[in-house]
Design a protein around this nucleic acid. Structure first.
Lengths: 201, 201
DNA sequence: ATAAAAATTAAACATTTGATTAAATCATAC
DNA sequence: GTATGATTTAATCAAATGTTTAATTTTTAT
């Protein structure tokens, strides 16, 4: 067993939980305090304000979110298809562990874009990745006008992430339960790279 | 020119605008009143409460959102590829007009799933559509175990909707401006049906 | 023209909510 | 053991927020 979490950690864990599930505006500092099992004043004692606490958590979420893309897309020693496959595998695994992260980031980015300008800068730029020239080469100069590499990147991310974002709706429309949903996501680790490769044909 | 909007319409329009942009919790009744140019008390006079006003708007958004899917997927007289094409075209056009709708629905569905159980019931069921048996036939019985029709439906919706949800992030990562983004979306009306058909091969 | 109904306004109310304060408790060093 | 600093608590504050009230103005019907 690990050591007991410090008060600071308890607050952060509770805050991450509730921020991710309900978003910034719907999260009350008292909910965080109760979930963490601490006195309300301790939240401000350790983190100064709800806003500061939120920014710490968002920064870490963003970093984790991009680290996956970065490490896969920056590697010059893997082929295109390997990159697609690695990204699908590691991302789907990660999101299964923390299903709320993508929606959390995207919905806060929509609601309060101002706060993100600094947090987002210094993150990945598509043109600086190793995958970008590989995509350009695979598509071929003469076909670049009909299929922009940005489409392929969007498609990869869309196919990986959207099912998790749309899960509550998909489960109702398609009559799939939680277990079946997870099984479908597992299959997608293999299917997505195949689909993306076909798009390049 | 159309007639002036009634007070009720002014409130609803303002509320739709702000709810869509900021979400339920971050929207203040006073913001709605100001945006609508009306006295705060009129909001409760016409709609009883913020919650009731929200539910009306959400119900209409959900209905509009599903009407497109329904009308395309229910039509027994179009081929699979025609359905893919029609859905991509009409959906992308609709979302370009009202880019916040998908994110609005999905993020509120995540934040307050309780409120949605009644609003969602009576909406579309995948197994009752005309497209479902078409998909099953196209895939073929012997391949159904390796590619569940639900994947194809998820992919279609993902490729259409996700770029709009991820737009603020995509624009930063891929260095595309608003005009280029719209041009890319226009291309996708033709590309998405093609990509989806390839997945069935 | 006038009375009744509908619409609008300014003010206030009751909670909620983020934050602070001052006192109390705990841990650590000497 | 005691003093010092860190941590925790209960209580409180001030502002924000959804809603209501009571009075006023505008519209409608006769």
């Amino acid at each position: 067993m690990g050591t007991d979490p410090t008060t600071e950690e308890k607050i952060k864990n509770a805050a991450r939980d509730i921020f991710m599930r309900k978003g910034y505006a719907a999260t009350k500092t008292r909910d965080i305090a109760e979930e963490a099992g601490i006195n309300l004043a301790l939240l401000n004692y350790y983190f100064r304000s709800k806003e500061k606490l939120f920014q710490q958590i968002m920064k870490e979420s963003l970093t984790g979110f991009f680290e996956h893309i970065r490490s896969v897309f920056m590697n010059p020693d893997t082929t295109l298809e390997e990159k697609f496959s690695l990204l699908a595998k590691s991302y789907i695994d990660q999101i299964i562990q923390q299903p709320d992260t993508p929606m959390f980031i995207l919905s806060e980015l929509r609601t309060r874009p101002e706060e993100f300008i600094n947090l987002m800068s210094g993150q990945i730029k598509m043109r600086d990745t190793a995958i970008f020239p590989q995509l350009v080469e695979e598509i071929g100069m003469e076909r670049l006008h009909e299929i922009n590499p940005v489409h392929i990147m969007m498609n990869l991310i869309s196919l990986v992430i959207f099912p998790f974002i749309g899960k509550p709706m998909i489960e109702r429309i398609a009559d799939v339960d939680d277990a079946s949903f997870k099984a479908l996501m597992e299959q997608r680790k293999e299917l997505i790279p195949k689909w993306i490769m076909q798009m390049l044909k």
